[in-house]
Nucleic acid binder design. Structure first.
Lengths: 193, 193
DNA sequence: GTGCCGTTCACCCGTTCGGGGGGTGTGCGA
DNA sequence: TCGCACACCCCCCGAACGGGTGAACGGCAC
């Protein structure tokens, strides 16, 4: 499997510097060879691809990690983005996508597989989270910045009383006891940033 | 400016179906022409590129939006991702990146400019997060669950006054104006879950 | 055109919070 | 042994919060 991918990549003009059978070995080789791009599997013996990415970020800033995996999970994707992964290719995707990803990442960009990209946006349609109105989100966002009702009202050109109304509605929807609870829930559910 | 980009794109084998001078006009044309990819400026008369993306997502699911902009702001990037934008290219980037983005997006992928990609990961990896004590984190975590000082104290077997002491220290470290701000910051920096 | 929803504003009341003091004791490293 | 950070406790006071209730307006759907 590994051999196959390497040979195909080399046929496409990519220099394959090294290959590893497990996580720690991968980190070791990446540190030693300092490649531009590292193709990493999500599931591998020793430690996960995300863990590899995290260590690579600390050790070799010249190297960018691409996850080449069969798994498509939004939480993992977000975690990997945080870990510094800049490419996501599904194993079921056409090989052309893999080459494209390597090109893009080598040039410093970020490539996300179409299917995973759909997940990123699709999460917004998550039915488990109640829909907040634009105004409610505005209020929560500004409260999260440390503003009082009065200050939020000033920013949104509405009265502090109206701010309280929006907040109370949001608290009801989020089943929150306090404003702090509401903001925390909104953040956890990515309803505000 | 618009003309220049169009002509360069056409020289590269991209069919340019239409062009628009402002937001509403862009939405109109996109709806009518149903292109695979729409190159949209973030700042334009009428409405922002993100607003265009949102409307396009509702109107023409066949079309994918690329933001071609001079602005690089993490919050905007996240908002745009939610709006369904699948490409981010900075105007200062080499033209090759624009072509790459168009290719990737046309194939269903997501392209994010190197600089912006750095923002995505960089925001979380900031070492500027102050270290909170165990107690301070306990207090913030329970406040995030909607508890009052009194309730937090009950849970932690300390008085409400002590809860306030820990909270005040945490607020100072996080430079937060309110308890809500402190909890929001702690969540964003992953100091609590 | 009747109803629902989002948005806007206002009043009340009791509770809680934020900011400022003060203090005790423990443990850890200089 | 002397700080220093941490955890813990207490006071005050003005401001803000939460909870309840009521009302008005525009837009959009049926």
């Amino acid at each position: 499997m590994v051999e196959a991918v390497c040979s195909v990549l080399e046929q496409h003009g990519v220099d394959v510097l090294g290959r590893a059978a497990n996580g720690p070995e991968a980190v070791e080789q990446i540190e030693e060879l300092a490649p531009e791009v590292a193709l990493v599997d999500l599931r591998m013996p020793g430690c996960s691809g995300i863990e590899v990415a995290r260590r690579v970020a600390r050790v070799s800033s010249a190297t960018t990690v691409i996850l080449y995996t069969a798994v498509s999970d939004r939480a993992l994707l977000v975690e990997a983005l945080d870990a510094g992964v800049r490419g996501f290719v599904l194993k079921e995707a056409p090989l052309a996508d893999l080459f494209r990803a390597v090109d893009v990442v080598a040039a410093g960009g970020t490539y996300i597989d179409p299917v995973l990209a759909g997940l990123l946006a699709g999460a917004r349609t998550d039915a488990s989270s109640p829909a907040l109105t634009q105004r409610e989100r505005d209020v929560l966002r500004l409260l999260a910045e440390g503003m009082s009702n009065e200050e939020v009202g000033g920013r949104l050109y509405i009265s502090a009383e109206t701010v309280r109304t929006h907040l109370r509605k949001a608290m009801g929807k989020l089943r929150a006891e306090t404003r702090t609870h509401a903001v925390a829930e909104a953040l956890r559910r990515s309803l505000i940033a």
